[in-house]
Amino acid sequence: MGPLVVNEIITENANLFLAFLIGIGFGFVLEVNGFSSSRRLAGMFYGYDTTVLKVFFTGAIVAAVGLLFMSLFNWIDLSYIYINPTYLWSSLGGGVIMGAGFILGGYCPGTSVCAASIGKLDAMAFLGGIVIGIFIFIEGFPMWEGFYNAKFLGSPLLSDIFGTSRGLITFLIILVALGMFWVGEWAEKHFARDDYKLNQK
């Protein structure tokens, strides 16, 4: 049956409309989880607030289990699912740059849009920084083109690398995620700050 647009069950435009609704849902989830607070996001790195880890990993494992069950019931053909290809060095480099920006600015790209939309000035400044970064990246592209395209690995899957089933890998990731949640909550107590209250409204 799925993916809906590939099998022409819905049109390209209906697909974009669904993406629009899901995007609103994503923004809503970010906002209700307090992700428009830069302190909450930065707390991830200092350990006093690990909500980011918990929300995103919960999303990932629920989606992974959901997709595998849908595949099992023949509701979706997983071979049609687009997997972002891996360019190893640019992934690592991009991860470092984004992580540094995350700590410095207190937002990741999605949450900065979220926070800017409720009128936070620091988020708007952050968005300006994103635009400047995009401009530098594009204008200087010839300089880092080699780095950008280096070590192309295709779309490797953990299950292929380890030669096991996707289901087993998913189960292991669930265990790892739950373990990280436990460590995260331990860290929240250990690194708690006097001037920061968890889940403040």
Partner: peptide, 15 residues
């Protein structure tokens, strides 16, 4: 909820 689901999906053969 998620651990039992994960165990099921790990146990069933892939489609």
């Amino acid at each position: 909820i998620i651990i039992p689901l994960g165990m099921i999906i790990a146990a069933v053969p892939e489609n």
